[in-house]
Design a protein around this nucleic acid. Sequence first.
DNA 1: AAATCGGGGCA
DNA 2: TGCCCAGATTT
Length: 354
Amino acid sequence: MKQFFTSALLEWNREDNTRSMPWKGEKDPYRIWLSEIILQQTRVEQGWAYYEKFIQAYPTVQHLAAAPEEEVFRLWQGLGYYARCKNMLAAARQIVSQFHGHFPNTYEAIQSLKGIGPYTSAAIASFAFNLPHAVLDGNVFRVLSRFFDIDTPIDSTAGKKQFASLAAELLPHGESAVYNQSIMDFGAVVCKPQQPACKICPLARKCKALHLGLISVLPVKTKKLVIKKRYFNYLIVKHKDDLYIRKRTENDIWQNLHEFVLIETSAPTDIQALEKLPAFKEKLSDMSYNIDAVSASFKQQLTHQTIHSQFILLSVAEKPEMPGYIAVPQDQLDRYAFPKTITDFLKRRELSLF
DNA sequence: AAATCGGGGCA
DNA sequence: TGCCCAGATTT
């Protein structure tokens, strides 16, 4: 069974796999690493252009390590999971300072880098150095759980151990790079989450889930998602040509991205009610202001929360004293990274003063 | 062990 | 909507 699985997969890769990607067959560990960080929880099509941008801007790890943080975040803007960006830059600097600019070449050393866990370490170890480590990503969980009919939840500790053990057994000696590439391509192209192509699947003959009618229930996950609603009221404080922004630093979404003056409320709040909040006066340090415009509501759906945002443009006559905020001329906003809700708003130019 | 961290594509 | 995506880190 296991023998069949591995050889059938490799044969599928030789004969039917036409999936092409910029980093496929790449041997430079820096480029492989970059692609793997970008692709964490991200579809290949979504990450593709970002990979090209980063390789162009930072051809080597030395270039990336020397880059200013704000510039790197600007390039990452829109890709999500911004901790990846922060960790990536830290790892680049680790490679230069601790590893003398040479990418580490053992599974353990690779995993000691910021932002690299079991999956990414196995991917780099196998793709760059052909080391015998099996990757375990969403594709692999799905393919294995179906073919071998394993209903242990993949988001449990027991499940991770069980699948990791099986994946390691299936890894063919000396062919970890091509095998790891194959199983992930296979999961993405044939054994897809929805409507897998079982009719043309070369492994169907021995696929347990297919014969048992369990394709749609495998893999099993236990945890349920709880989605919170949040209401963001952004005050765009304008003094002459300057707008006031800050970097988000708290443990929350969008850490290290920038934003305008935020007043979060637990329910939709109109501007009259907003002005009566103590927080409103505090944020503006009792300055006199004039409300120039109020935007419509922008909605953004994240994995764990739904954000409703409105933007209130207000101008002040005197230079504001706002600790923690920086004044940025309107035409230089594009030097800073913002969350998508804000870039959408800025692009829309809904408020006439932009 | 459970909770978080984005944004986009698809049914 | 809900689910998933070349997962990792924090709580």
